[in-house]
């Protein structure tokens, strides 16, 4: 399942297309496309695990991101469940703090993987902490 494998797929697909008349399915090439997709998915998954394995901090960031998605989902489904947006400012505060934290984490992650020119990883982390504190402060005031 290396990238090389993907390259070797293409001649196979050509064969499949040439034998359209003989095959009876409505989408004769669908099998190959899903196989392509599965391959691509597996490749990227593997690349991801490789990346995470190198740096525990990335793993930590990703876990936090998943947690944020869960918290945001819980709040939204609560709002849908009670069929009432009141108190809407509280919902906005709760939801936006998740989104904002997610964005901040993503920018931190970007800089950890490939630092921007002239900005060290430590400085990136400092900025992340400062921005997060401001975000929490604003959220708490918004929910009042």
């Amino acid at each position: 399942m290396s990238p090389v494998g993907v390259v070797t797929m293409s001649p196979k697909r050509k064969k499949a297309v040439s034998s359209v008349q003989t095959r009876s399915g409505p989408f004769p090439w669908s099998g190959t496309i899903s196989r392509d997709f599965t391959d691509a998915f597996n490749v990227s998954l593997k690349a991801y695990w490789d990346q995470v394995k190198k740096d525990n901090r990335l793993k930590l960031i990703d876990i936090f991101c998943v947690f944020l998605v869960v918290v945001a989902f819980v709040q939204t489904s609560f709002m849908v469940l009670i069929r009432d947006t009141f108190p809407f400012n509280a919902f906005l505060a709760g939801f936006i703090v998740c989104v904002g934290q997610f964005v901040l984490l993503m920018s931190l992650r970007l800089q950890l993987v490939s630092p921007f020119d002239g900005i060290s990883k430590n400085r990136a982390f400092g900025e992340f902490v400062l921005a997060s504190l401001i975000l929490h402060f604003i959220s708490l005031h918004f929910i009042n």
Binding site: Q75, F86, P87, G94, F95, S139
Partner: peptide, 11 residues
């Protein structure tokens, strides 16, 4: 507000 408890605990 009772309902805001969910969002507060979220934050």
């Amino acid at each position: 507000i009772t309902n805001a408890g969910v969002y507060l605990s979220g934050i």
